[in-house]
Amino acid sequence: MKNIAAIFFLCLSISSCAQRVSKNEKPPKECVRLNDEGVKYLMKPSLGGMNQADTAITFFKEAIHCDSNYIVAFVNLAGAYENKHDFKSEMLVYNKLLSLTNNYPGFIVQKAILFEKLDEVDSAKKNYTIAALGYSKKLSMSPNDIDAIKGLIDIKALTVGKDEAISELNKQIKIHPDIAAKLNDERFFYESFDRKTMTGRSDY
């Protein structure tokens, strides 16, 4: 059940950032159809011992072959590898996503989480730091960038704990009254944040 929760968060968080960093033009309808078929299989439970993620992966790869810049399909492919605990293949997908999105910090965070699951703690810390610098740069250019603010709070939760993340959330709400309501919507997530579910590790 915890694995399902982690995958749900993965899909929820990075699919939204995928929409933000995707190009304005929509992929061809056939590419979208292939991606959507993959999503259907990814959401299905295993049948007869067969992991539906394998079929999902095939569809996502076909969608990417159809449109090599289809960011949402790449994100879903990463989610399918996450489902299979194939973290090395998932890492390769995020490397590709970073090249497509000019090193979007949200994908760097996902790489840091993967490094933790692979027990490569130093690499994880390095990537959290790089991601935080990326979000800080976005904030310097756009102080009310809610994506960057939430990204920095996410890194707090992942690296120092949910109490510190909630403290940072409260601080950011005071600094940004115009988007306080949207930021406050994240409170339940941080109050129920479980680092071990996300990273496989309980230590910081």
Rank of each mutant, 00 (worst) to 15 (best):
T55H: 09
K111E: 15
V109S: 02
A180M: 06
A181S: 11
K111Q: 15
A80I: 01
K117C: 07
K150M: 11
D203C: 05
I175H: 01
N3W: 12
G200I: 08
Y104G: 00
F189A: 10
L169G: 04
A6W: 01
L114Y: 04
Q172S: 10
S13L: 11
K171E: 12
Y94W: 12
L133C: 02
E164I: 01
K182E: 15
N24A: 14
V109E: 08
L10C: 01
I166A: 03
N144T: 07
D194E: 14
M43G: 03
L152F: 03
D154E: 08
E25K: 12
Q52M: 15
R195W: 03
D185S: 10
D145Y: 05
H85D: 09
Q52P: 04
S15M: 14
Y70K: 05
N76S: 07
Q110P: 00
L100W: 07
I175M: 09
T197H: 03
I155E: 07
C31H: 08
I108M: 13
N144R: 05
D147R: 01
M43T: 09
K88Q: 08
K137V: 01
K84A: 02
S140E: 14
K61V: 00
S68W: 04
N95R: 09
K150V: 06
L118N: 06
V39T: 08
V93K: 02
F8L: 08
E191R: 10
F60H: 02
I155Y: 04
N170L: 02
V93T: 07
N103S: 14
S89Q: 14
K138Q: 15
I149R: 04
L97N: 05
Q19L: 13
C66K: 08
D163E: 14
V72I: 12
N69G: 09
K138V: 01
G49W: 12
G151C: 04
H65M: 06
E168L: 10
G38T: 11
Y41D: 15
I153C: 03
F189P: 00
K126F: 11
S202T: 09
E30N: 12
F188Y: 10
P27T: 07
A5E: 14
H176Q: 11
Y128E: 05
I4D: 13
M1H: 10
Y94S: 05
M198N: 00
V121T: 12
E191F: 02
V109M: 08
Y128F: 15
I14K: 08
D67C: 06
I113H: 01
I149L: 10
K2Y: 04
V21C: 14
T129N: 13
K26E: 15
I108C: 02
I64H: 12
F74G: 01
P105M: 12
G134Q: 08
L118R: 06
L77R: 02
K44Q: 15
L118K: 07
F188P: 00
K88T: 06
D122K: 12
E164L: 05
K2M: 06
D145T: 01
Q110F: 02
K174F: 04
L100C: 05
N95C: 02
D154A: 06
